[in-house]
Every structure is written in structure tokens, then in C-alpha cells.
Amino acid sequence: MKTAITTTAALVSISLLAACGGGSSGELEPQMASFSLGVSDAPVNGAKAVMVCFSEIELTGNGVGSQSFTIGDDDVAAEANDNCRDGQGNLLPNTRGIDLLLLDGAKSEALITGAEFAAGNYGQLRLEIAEGSYVELEDGMREPLRVPSNELKLGGVTLSAGGTFNYTLEFDLRKAMVNPPGQDGYLLKPTGLRLVDNSEVGHLEGQVDEGLLITNSCTVAPADASLPVATVYLYQGADRPLAELSDNGGNNTYQPYASTNVYFDGVSEYNYSIGFIEADMYTAALSCDVADDPEQADAIEFLQAQNVTIAASATAVTLDFTE
């Protein structure tokens, strides 16, 4: 995991006029809140790196105009970041490049930390994505990564006066990243992105028995440990029937809340992890089918499912799949 970059936004100055007695008025100090935003990821097949270049964070819909934070507008964030470059190889100013594939499970990287925004109920958070984003494939080739209108639009946040708020944007690339036929490179869609309050989430991790994989003719002990051997899907609610579970592009009754790969550790264990899950009851299901096109229904066979309760905690819940 990369070292997190800490940024501090300039205070947003807002003057509010209030009537006082005989028509006099006074200037009130704006009520502020501290806001931090990190990013995390669930892995995707076929890529060695997924570099996303962030340039601006904007909160809108508070009744006082949009509040924005541009990467690099303060001294700390202006530290060199050579991950984002234009087509001629020139460094793009005011960008922060983050390789999402380094941030699986409960790992995250700070995009902004302790930025001061006017308190209020914001209807939408927008992330401006700069050119220079790319996907590095397993053969070393790089393909451009695009975002519709160069902007990711997410749900809103409520920032109460004087509060400190920490959010994480979880990129479920198995849902969000597609390779449209006939188009150049990859497309990153808001589908599968979750903006969560860190005080309301937990994490899930576990292992899969090798015997279970062997019994079901799944891949075991691959020579290349970067290749997944199975997948774990997570569905909101308990006791979801296997026959009614959908893959990321399917239309069965229950759609995945999240999904991730199971990897061989090169010795004896098969591990998986899913991070930043909203506290709730879930059904976790295991499959040895690792191909899942988010644009269409795939023939996914689920081997077994278990209920799991995720509590708001920094400590991950352990759930193993055994014979």
C-alpha cells in the first residue's frame, strides 16, 4: 500500500448577513466541518494496474453554492506525483494518481484529509478525473481509462458543524470497469462505486479450503499466484437462495452488493477480502467461475453460501468456506 498523502483545503469563506434590531446587520462566521476522503478497491481480472488520476472534489447542493477542493492547491498536496501525464508525456498539474489495485480489502489511500468545508447537507459529491488514467494489462500494454464526461457523480453527504467526517470511495472494478467493443481503451462507470461513511462500515476476510476447490474441480495452486482461483460474492440480506443469486451483469432476483477474487498465497492458503461494507446482514456465496462480464449475464455456478453479519468496526469479520 502506498503512503497516504495528507491534504488540507483552504477554509471556504461565506458571509451570512443577519438582521439585528433597527435594521442593523452583522457578519456571521460560517459553520465548518472537517472532511476526509479515501479510496479503496476490489480487484479485477486481467489487469496489473488501474491508475486513476483525480483532479478535483466538489460537494454540491448545500444552498450556498458548490464547495470544491482542487488537488495541489495547498503546499502539502503540491508534492510531486508523476503518475499522471498527457499524451506527450508531460506531467499534469493538480492531479493525484492512485493505482487502485494496490488497495484491496480494508486498505485505502487518502485523497484529501482534513479539508474544511461549510457544514450542511450536500446532495452530491463529484470527482473530476483527469486525462492520464490508464489500465496496465498483464502483458504490460497500457490502455487509456476514460470516465463519462470526465466526472464521477456520487451520492450526497451530511456534514454537521464542528464535526469530523471520514469517507471512503470503494471502487468495485468487477462492476465498474468495462472494455466496450469498438472503443479505444476502458471505461470507468459509476456503477459499482460505493461512497461510505467510515464510522458505519466493516470488513470481511477469509479462506477457502483447498479440499473444497479440488472436490468441485476448481483451479488449485496456480503457478502464477496473481491469477484468481475462485470468487466470493456478497448479497444484502440473510439466507439468499443460490438459485436466485445474480452475477455482476445478470438479472436474477438478488444483485451483488460486492464481489472479489480468491487468490492462492503460493504456499497453502486461498484468501479473499472485501472492505468498506455497510454494517448489515449479508449472504456470502462462493463460486469457482472467475469470469464475470458486468455488461451481460454469465453462467455462474455457486458452490455454497453462508450468512455473515458485518458490524461497524476496523477489525475484519472472518468467514471461511470449508467442505
Rank of each mutant, 00 (worst) to 15 (best):
Y282D: 03
D293V: 11
E136L: 09
D292H: 03
G249S: 14
F117T: 06
Y257S: 13
N307Q: 14
A223P: 08
A284H: 04
E131Q: 14
P241C: 01
L242S: 00
T322N: 11
L159H: 07
S13G: 02
N261H: 15
M32H: 14
A314D: 10
T215H: 14
R240M: 09
A78K: 15
D289V: 13
S259Y: 08
S55L: 08
N271W: 04
L111T: 04
D172R: 13
V232G: 03
F302N: 09
R240E: 05
L111I: 07
T283I: 10
T6F: 05
S287P: 01
G140M: 14
S199T: 02
A106W: 03
A285V: 03
G192F: 13
P43Q: 12
C288Y: 03
I300Q: 12
V220Q: 05
T315K: 10
I98D: 00
V44S: 10
P181N: 04
A311T: 14
N252P: 01
T60F: 08
I112H: 06
P148Y: 09
D75K: 12
A4F: 01
C20P: 02
A176M: 10
G65E: 09
I57E: 12
G163E: 15
Q304P: 06
G123I: 04
A9G: 14
I112D: 04
N271E: 11
G266T: 08
L188K: 08
F264H: 00
I277P: 06
R146C: 01
L92G: 00
N94F: 12
A221D: 13
K107N: 04
S36Y: 12
G140L: 06
G87R: 14
L145W: 05
S313F: 11
S36V: 03
T3C: 00
G21R: 08
G26Y: 04
M281C: 09
A311E: 14
G156K: 02
N307R: 05
E56K: 15
T168F: 04
K189A: 04
T95N: 11
T8E: 02
L102I: 00
E58R: 14
E210R: 01
Q306M: 06
Q304C: 02
I14A: 12
T95L: 03
Y122A: 02
E323C: 03
P190K: 11
G61V: 09
A115P: 09
I214T: 07
C53L: 06
S66H: 14
Q236A: 13
R174C: 02
R85M: 09
I98N: 00
C218E: 07
S68P: 11
V12I: 12
S25G: 06
I129F: 05
